[in-house]
């Protein structure tokens, strides 16, 4: 069990390193939610604490993948309400895909709904299960939520803990 865990962590670090620059959508939408922090009077994550880019493997379900892409576009265009509708539709199709819940959390955060964003990040963490990349993504989203809620220390601590899965 422990050996398996070690191997998977090594693989994740390697993959994460290689894929550090391959996730424009995730990066864009994350930046978008950051802009919204500002517009909602919330603290924007500092450069030091802002998470590095993480490889964002798309959902396996083709329909969910398309809707996620559309939601990403909506988020970059600062249209979180539209993004929420698209992501909820995607979740109805593929409810156990943690990435969709992560994006839903981002969309709610962009809209200024920190409580909903926090709960959706928790949901993503619960669904990520043994997928370490998804788990890291979900926790980093939780860090964003915490930062927005003024819990900067906890956010920084989470980022320190999960940034090692990124390149």
């Amino acid at each position: 069990m422990n050996i398996k865990l070690c191997i998977s962590l090594v693989c994740i670090i390697l993959i994460g390193g290689c894929a550090g620059n391959q996730g424009p959508k995730a990066t864009d939408s994350r930046a978008s939610s950051g802009k919204k922090f500002k517009s909602n009077g919330k603290t924007q994550p500092s450069a030091q604490t802002k998470p590095a880019k993480i490889r964002s493997t798309p959902p396996k379900n083709s329909a969910a993948k398309i809707l996620l892409a559309q939601a990403d576009t909506a988020l970059t265009q600062q249209a979180p309400v539209q993004a929420i509708a698209l992501l909820e539709r995607a979740i109805r199709i593929d409810p156990r895909e943690a990435l969709l819940w992560i994006r839903l959390s981002q969309a709610h955060l962009a809209q200024g709904h920190a409580t909903a964003a926090s709960q959706h990040a928790r949901k993503a963490i619960a669904l990520a299960g043994s997928d370490a990349v998804r788990t890291a993504q979900a926790w980093l989203q939780m860090a964003d939520v915490m930062e927005a809620q003024g819990e900067r220390q906890q956010a920084a601590s989470l980022r320190r803990r999960y940034l090692r899965f990124a390149g």
């Binding site: 309400v81 929420i84 509708a85 909820e88 979740i91 839903l104 709610h108 909903a116 709960q119 959706h120 928790r122 949901k123 619960a126």
Partner: peptide, 21 residues
């Protein structure tokens, strides 16, 4: 309920997922 639109198709209310751990 997912959403309510007016007669012209404009959204009046969206009823999002609401969960608490």
């Amino acid at each position: 309920v997912i959403a309510v639109l007016n007669e012209q198709g404009q959204p009046l209310s969206h009823h999002p997922f609401d969960l608490t751990q």
